[in-house]
Design a binder for these strands. Structure first.
Lengths: 156, 156
DNA sequence: GGCAGGTCTAACGCCTACGTCAAGGTTATA
DNA sequence: TATAACCTTGACGTAGGCGTTAGACCTGCC
């Protein structure tokens, strides 16, 4: 009788593994970014590995794209729809419903894609500029060195 | 007698041209992100073109790097030091002082550079993943279409 | 010199994304 | 069965980044 369902995790472990606080996990749940996890009899939250992934995903979107949690909710909601789409893969019910969901998902992902692209372009520009500046600095540094050789520091 | 100094701008124009509010401009000044601009006799702020550039620079750092204004202050402070370095380009006074300033500037710019690089790497990953997903969506879309052909929508 | 429209400072407000108690219930282990 | 370690739900607090309002002042123009 193997209790092989999933190695469920308590909130503390999830917090440790994801690097966020327990408060943040409850907060995300409150805001609908994480679906309410299952519970032990006593009320303790039990998270799955999928939840852990979801959290790291959220953090990446926050950090990389710098978008608000409300927008991130849109994105993860779309993901959730996709899970459902993939799960109920019976071609029986609601094909047009599925099409609508799929189109919504495409929309969201494409929006995300555009943000990523724009960011990358702008970052590329910025990178070039920074490289320019670093080169300038090296030149200056060389010039300063020559000046120091000619006129050694006072007190030396 | 040409009054050719600089076409100085009032706060409203700067706000319009940079896309930030007047409040934001005063706020940045308060926080040391913008040096106190000159004033008209009556007290109205008079900004230069350099100030406009500074503002757009600040916004880019905010938007692209997502760093706090305090950190941005460090960056723009370094820039200011460089202006000074470039301005007083007499090799007379304080060579070692200049070296220190230059090294500080290099430090700041390199830090910024690393942030940019990391962001770009992560964004690149994310981009690949998004492309994968879009391909998957296209496949699904095709499958759905075939299903719809076989079993036309109810009500048609 | 009077009016419209722009600007000034000061001060309080607000939203986001959590931090930080407090008081009490749960679980595992000895 | 008791005790340490963990978790629960409130509820208030906070930091950053401005928004908004009030009341007064300036500027340009007729």
């Amino acid at each position: 009788m193997p209790e092989r369902t999933d190695p469920y995790l308590q909130i503390g472990e999830v917090a440790e593994r994801t690097g966020v606080t327990q408060r943040t996990l409850r907060f995300y749940e409150e805001k609908g970014l994480l679906k309410p996890p299952s519970r032990m009899d006593g009320g303790f939250r039990l998270y799955s590995e999928a939840d852990v992934k979801r959290v790291t995903q959220i953090r990446r979107l926050q950090d990389l794209l710098g978008v608000a949690l409300a927008d991130i909710k849109e994105m993860v909601d779309a993901e959730e729809m996709l899970r459902e789409l993939r799960a109920q893969y019976d071609p029986e019910s609601g094909i047009s419903e599925k099409r609508r969901q799929l189109e919504k998902a495409i929309e969201v992902v494409e929006a995300q894609y555009k943000i990523v692209q724009q960011k990358m372009e702008h970052l590329h520009e910025m990178k070039s500029q920074l490289e320019e500046r670093l080169k300038t600095f090296e030149r200056w540094s060389g010039e300063l060195e020559r000046l120091e050789d000619k006129a050694p520091v006072a007190g030396a």
